[in-house]
């Protein structure tokens, strides 16, 4: 009896499926439209150079993204210094501060610092850099994977201080980064990949 019931149910389900066969295109269109929804905020595009060398590169959150940016600078032949735990007294002769934004608990652990100390360091550094008239360029290149509770702390602590923000677009699906940029009148470039971020960075220099 149970088997007979099962058969009836399956035939009924299959019949419904048959009826539905003609309608799947519109269903799929709807779901495609839904999945494509992302927050689009209008931001100010960079129109010309705003920065000059020498560059000093540091991290906000101790993720490995800072090393990826270093690789791009090295490959591009740009003159730079790197100090992943740069403090406000270490800006030296630099004219531009590039900051790799994104948290990593492993990176913080390896550096022997906790998130709150890292935020304090960044806050003091960014304020000093601004006071000294440096151009500050923020780079969030880790995409969607470099978002979440930890990384968002560093985004909130740093983005409003930057003059120019470069974002690999997966990291701004919710519009958080572009929202802060728009609110603070910050130049912003969205790029498709980490490698593309170098082109956006280069645009900031003569």
């Amino acid at each position: 009896m149970r088997k007979l019931s099962l058969l009836i149910i399956i035939i009924a389900a299959a019949s419904l499926f048959t009826i539905g066969c003609g309608g799947d295109e519109s269903v799929s269109k709807t779901s495609q439209q839904e999945s494509a929804v992302s927050v689009q905020v209008s931001v100010k595009a960079l129109e010309g150079p705003i920065a000059e060398t020498p560059i000093i590169l540091t991290s906000a959150g101790q993720s490995a993204d800072v090393k990826m940016i270093e690789s791009l600078l090295k490959k591009g032949g740009m003159e730079y210094e790197i100090n992943e735990v740069l403090d406000s007294s270490g800006l030296g002769e630099a004219r531009t501060l590039v900051i790799a934004i994104g948290g990593s608990s492993k990176g913080l652990g390896a550096a022997g610092i906790d998130a709150e100390d890292e935020i304090d360091r960044i806050d003091a550094l960014l304020k000093e850099a601004a006071a000294k008239g440096l151009t500050i360029i923020g780079m969030h290149i880790g995409g969607e994977g470099r978002r979440g509770e930890l990384s968002d702390k560093f985004i909130k602590a740093s983005v409003e201080f930057v003059d120019y923000l470069i974002v690999v677009e997966g990291g701004d699906k919710d519009g958080m980064l572009s929202g802060i940029a728009a609110e603070n009148d910050i130049f912003m470039s969205r790029v498709g990949s980490i490698v593309d971020s170098y082109g956006a960075l280069k645009k900031a220099f003569p």
Partner: peptide
């Protein structure tokens, strides 16, 4: 995510 996290070491 793991490759990105381990970039320092892998590179």
């Amino acid at each position: 995510g793991i490759i990105a996290d381990m970039y320092r070491i892998l590179s």
